[in-house]
Amino acid sequence: MPLLFFARAAGAVINLYYIFLGSEPRSAVANTRTLNPLADHTISARLAKKRTRHVRERLIEGLLFLCASVSVVVTVGIVLILLTESYQFFQHVALFDFLTDRQWTPLFDDAHYGIMVLLSGTLMSSLVALAVAIPLGTIIAIYLSEFAPFAVREIAKPFLELLGGVPTIVYGYFALLYVTPALQYFFPGLPGFNLLSAGLVMGIMIIPYVSSVSEDAMRSVPMAMREGSYAMGATRFQTAVRVVTPAAFSGIAAAYILGISRAVGETMIVAVAAGMQPNLTWNPAEPAATITAYIVQVALGDLPHGSIGYQTIFAAGLTLMLLTLFFNVVGHFLKRRYRQAY
C-alpha cells in the first residue's frame, strides 16, 4: 500500500507544521479535552485560544497566497528581464534594421542583426513539423474518440503520453543520426544538417499534444448529437467528420495552437539536427538556425555579461515570446469564434 504510506508521511509532515506554528499536535489537544472538558474554560482562556487559532489561520492563508502568486511573479520576471535587456540591445541596433536586415551575423566584426533570418528557420521547421503533426494528430484523435475499441484506446493513450515524455535531446539525436541518413538515401544531395529531418521528428514529438487535447474536445461532444446523426442514417465516418469534428472545433483549435507553440519554442531537436548556421531560406532541405538554436549557440560559448552579443539572445527571446503570444491570441479568437455550448 504505497499510497497509504505516502498519506501517512504527509500526515507526519503536516503535524510538523503544527509544532512549527507553536501549538501542540492534534492528538495531544484532543486528549486533554476529553479527559477534563472544563479544565481551562475560563472565558478569557477560551477567547485567547480562539484568537491564536484565528491568527494562525490568517497566517496560513497569507502563506498560501504568496505561493499562488509565484506564477504572477514569474510572468512579470520574464517580461521585465526580456524587456530590459532588449531595451539595452535596441539602444545599439535600430528596430528597423532588426526587422528588415537580411543577415544575422551578430558575432562578426561586420555585425548584422536581421531577425528575419532566424525567423525563417523557426517558421520553416515549425511548418514541416505541423504538416506532420496536425493531420496525424487529428486523425489519431478522431480514430481514438470515434472508432477505436475500448482496449485499443486504453493502450494507445498512455503510449502517446509516453511518446510526449521522451526528452527532446533524444529526439534530436534520433533526427541527426537516424532520420537524416534515411532521408539522404532518398534525396542524395541532402546536407547532414537540415530543417526537414528536424521538422519531421519535431512533428512526431508534437503528435501527442495535438491528439490528446483534440480527443478530449471530441469526447466532450454530447452523445445525443452522435445519436441524432446515426438516427438520420449517417455512418460512423460521416458522423465523426460532419458532426463531431465541427462541434469540437473550438477545442481542436486549442490543440493546434498548443502544437504551434511547441513547434516554435522547440530547441534541442533543431539545435542538434538543423545546424546552427543562420540562413535566410524557405527551403526545408537546407540547414538553418532557428531563434532557439541561436540562443543555445550563444549560451554554449561564453559571452561576457552585458555585451551586445549577450543582449542579442534576449532580443531573440523577446521575438520568440511575441511569436507565441501572437499564436495564442489568434487561438483565443478562434476558440471564441467556434465555441459551441450544449
Partner: peptide, 25 residues
C-alpha cells in the same frame, strides 16, 4: 483571475524562455 490566467499562460511559455529568465535573474 490574474493568478489563474498566469498559471495557464506559463504552461505554454517555451522552456528556453525560462532559461533566459534564469540567466538574467
Amino acid at each position: 483571475d490574474i493568478i489563474e490566467i498566469n498559471v495557464t499562460n506559463l504552461a505554454g511559455v517555451p522552456s528556453i524562455i525560462y532559461g533566459l529568465l534564469a540567466l538574467g535573474l
